[in-house]
Design a protein around this nucleic acid. Structure first.
Lengths: 366, 366
DNA sequence: GTCGCGGCTACAAACGTATGCAGTGGATGG
DNA sequence: CCATCCACTGCATACGTTTGTAGCCGCGAC
């Protein structure tokens, strides 16, 4: 039974029944040796290769038994070397702690596994200036395609590496930029318009805006806000637009800045649900009643938005549909990878969000 | 310039200046050919191999230039085949949408990248009964070690595959089970005790509990709750303990069940912040004022807990410390992988949580 | 009796990289 | 002027698969 693979020293290994730990991985070669067959035969059986060559039923069973017995696990590296697809979908997200992206990742996981793919998660880590390790995450993983979640424009290295790469990349929520990366976007303008229609319909005339860093979708939302109010002839007052990180704390701080003035706004549009939650909290801290004294809206409709106090009026992001579309685009591109001509350039799909009215908005107070 | 790698047909490729898409990946062989050197020399230079053999400075520069010029990317598969470590840390999480785990993943990402590792995320998908594709996620990825986030006891296939595997596995928040997987845990009993001390100190005598599925930490928390109240001689009334999924909706539903009775409790301990947020919402819906009429506590201290309405009294989970410890354990195990003896069995580290008093708890009402 | 053929299996060449060892050339010392 | 040594580079092999093709064997047909 000594197959020559033992290390030189005959140190007896722990006699535990189940030799876990450091059993040199079982290879096809081992199975071949155990069954007296050749490694290639084993390979064919283990992959039920498409009848190119017939295999005796008895042999098949013998091999399968041995494989199970020895606890064989295919080595994906070796498999990948031969050019097989890795069935991996890389996902780069700029901030995992952003609950919105967490939801998107969930959606991507579901959609990917429906197609037999698994997810590899890279992490842009918004606050790390040196995002160099990034490209390692992707390329280092040899995925079949890559999904980009969020606007990565501030990570030029990443974009560059990605562009130089030979595999399909699809971006989500990167805002309508002119980067030549196929993308799936949402109609941010329509979302903001819906929110502002709703608020003005409730009689609000002084509507403030709280945004995150001017990236991607956030930027679009702010621009849409400005355009809308300008067109209506009631542009925001000075100080009616606040910026900060996309965190509840920033929202809370912004609210104080907005309200610690004479003649404060009667409604605040947040560029994000997370910010809106911070606004709600700060309003409560000040003893302000929402929506009686102040209306607040969000954007995204994260899971918690329906359970805030009070429940948040927001814009529903069609996350599932967008991710579905993006995964499909990426995988289609893989399929097309053999052909020479680049796929016909189509306008990036843009999906429609929808207003969800809950309890954080009401008629404008005197 | 025709290096023989072209496909047979001389179909001219799109003349775009930047030939993206489907340029067969540049290999060391290509660089060797371009510089007139051999592949092995290129390899040594590109890895600055440790002076085993000297390399002429001019040659080095020539190669580096060519590598940059051609846009060389090392193939991690091939590299891994040779046994090199993949610098990958696998993470299996049972539910990504759980904001608590999202935070943990963030922490793991940070800690891993501090050590030059990257994360691969597998997804147990709490609701998928057939978690078969799972083991594919891990093994298929050939990581150097695996972190388990949450209790996976209901996924026996996964545990089994994991145990049969030869690489280090460390579990986090799996509850104190007797599975022979090294783990890092938190002292749930101490956390619950702190919460109950706090509440009884405020005069509460009828304290209800809302838990998720009886898994891991949640189970421990519920048991601690029962023990505590029993020891104090005021065991929970019938119906004072509610169960559900770990979602705000479940928390909201539970609150109604708890309060739609004569003689309702004056405080509710949630096994999780997420549930507690649902409780807060439901209380608000009922017009109940927190904490004047009802006290509510959470567990975990997720980022949003400080920004709920009102801010949530909860138990801080030492996430960063725990993840740090776990990553260290896993990586240490890798280092030890060459030695034969299994590392000396040590009791799994258990970290201490701490009470965070905010505004959702107050003196018991009449 | 020989040939052919079908059914099964083994051989071997990739895939891209790492690395021990064997060269090769030039310079230097005797 | 030859031997020696050093600085440098190439050769070859291994890693674990996949896959095209060649080989073996027995049985039936002519």
């Amino acid at each position: 039974m000594n197959d020559g693979r033992d290390a030189g020293s005959a140190a007896k290994r722990p006699p535990a029944g189940r030799t876990r730990r450091r059993g040199a991985p079982v290879t096809m070669q081992d199975i071949a040796q155990a069954t007296g067959l050749s490694q290639s035969t084993v390979s064919r059986i283990l992959n039920r290769s498409p009848t190119v060559v017939p295999i005796a039923e008895s042999t098949r069973e013998r091999v399968l038994a041995a494989a199970k017995e020895l606890g064989y696990r295919p080595n994906p590296l070796a498999r990948g070397l031969r050019g097989a697809s890795t069935m991996l979908l890389g996902v780069i997200v700029r901030d995992i702690t952003d609950v919105f992206f967490a939801g998107a990742i969930e959606a991507a996981t579901v959609e990917a596994s429906r197609r037999g793919y698994n997810l590899v998660l890279g992490h842009a880590h918004a606050r790390a200036d040196e995002a160099i390790a990034l490209w390692g995450v992707l390329e280092a993983r040899h995925c079949d395609a890559i999904l980009l979640l969020g606007d990565m424009r501030d990570q030029p290295r990443l974009i560059e590496d990605l562009a130089g790469d030979s595999l399909p990349v699809v971006a989500l929520w990167q805002g309508s930029t002119d980067m030549d990366i196929p993308s799936v976007t949402v109609d941010n303008r329509a979302g903001i318009r819906a929110v502002l229609d709703h608020l003005t319909g409730l009689g609000h005339r002084r509507i403030a805006f709280v945004g995150g860093r001017l990236l991607g979708d956030i930027k679009e939302r702010e621009e849409a806000y400005l355009d809308y109010l300008t067109e209506l002839g009631m542009p925001p007052h000075e100080g009616d637009v606040q910026h900060g990180l996309n965190e509840p704390a920033a929202g809370a701080a912004a609210l104080d800045l907005l309200l610690d003035r004479p003649d404060p706004p009667t409604a605040v549009v947040a560029s994000t649900d997370v910010l809106a939650l911070g606004l709600l909290h700060a309003a409560h801290e000040r003893g302000l009643r929402v929506p009686e004294q102040l209306s607040i809206t969000g954007f995204d409709d994260i899971a918690l938005a329906a359970y805030s106090v009070p429940a948040l009026t927001t814009v529903r992001m069609p996350v599932r549909e967008m991710v579905e579309k993006a995964v499909q685009m990426a995988l289609d591109e893989i399929g097309r990878s053999d052909e020479l001509e680049p796929s016909a350039e189509q306008p990036p799909p843009m999906l429609q969000p929808s207003l969800v009215v809950r309890d954080s908005t009401g008629r404008a107070s005197a």
